[in-house]
Amino acid sequence: MMELGATLCSKSKPGCSGCPISSHCQALALSLENPSVQVTDFPRVVPKAKPRSDFAAVCVVQIAQGLEKEVTDAMGTDNLFLLIKRPEEGLLAGLWEFPLVLVEEGKTDSLNRRKAMDKYLTKLLSIDVGRKSDVILREDVGEHVHIFSHIRLTMYVELMIINLKDAVDRLCKKEDDSTKLKFTNESSVESMGLTSGIRKVYNMVKAFKEKRLYVSEKGQVPTRKRSRRLK
């Protein structure tokens, strides 16, 4: 069939008279029945649907265990990252990603994004994050647009470093099996098979942290932000 398409049944100039299976060709039959129909009208080209635009808040949550640390210490590699497993069906089924929440197009400002993310994280974690942890650092990192075949996803990325006063293994809700999450160190994140979009998000955060460390090493220690609690 491939050879036939390459030699006789070309899209622009099909050789119907010499085709050995022309008697079975529906396009030829239709063209003989109706002069206005051409063999070259087939196969019909179906116009691609315009990709819809989605918007998402993505929060790279880094867990700094133990006593409260300075921002520059928390930027180190001995910390854990929170990863969420996507549902087993649908887009990117079963893959791991950082906490991600879709937001409405008119509510992509920082305040609304953080409200949506705070609500999502509170639902995911088995503790009251506002009371049992302090936010050491929370800053917007940037935007990344990822194009799927039918979706144009704009991801607004932020980094949040949390100092926990309880053990990490108590964070997961035991009664909720619909959402799977885990905590993994930086070396494991580097070697995981993340999607290209999430990998880009991770690299953005990594570059952001390296830049802050560079500024700190030059003697310009970043101003420490007041710890804010998740609501």
Rank of each mutant, 00 (worst) to 15 (best):
L100N: 02
C9V: 05
D73W: 04
V58I: 08
K50S: 11
S23D: 13
R113L: 04
V46A: 07
V141R: 01
I147S: 08
L100S: 06
W96K: 12
E175P: 06
V71Q: 02
R152V: 06
K211S: 03
G90L: 00
A93G: 02
L164F: 09
P20M: 12
V103I: 07
C59V: 07
E33T: 03
S187H: 12
P35Y: 13
S17I: 13
V60F: 05
L8A: 11
E186S: 13
S216D: 15
E70D: 15
V221H: 06
T184R: 04
S196A: 14
G90F: 01
R226I: 14
V58T: 12
E97N: 01
E68T: 15
S196M: 05
M117P: 01
R224H: 11
D166A: 07
L164C: 06
Q38R: 14
F55N: 09
G15W: 11
K231G: 14
K107P: 00
A6L: 11
R52E: 08
V37Q: 11
E33Y: 07
K13F: 12
V221R: 13
R86S: 07
E105M: 06
L80H: 11
R224F: 00
E105A: 09
S23C: 11
E88S: 14
K132T: 15
T108F: 00
T7Q: 14
D78W: 06
N163H: 09
N163R: 06
M204A: 03
I198M: 12
R138N: 13
S23Q: 14
R212C: 02
V215N: 07
V71L: 13
P47G: 12
T179A: 00
A116Y: 02
I151E: 06
E3P: 05
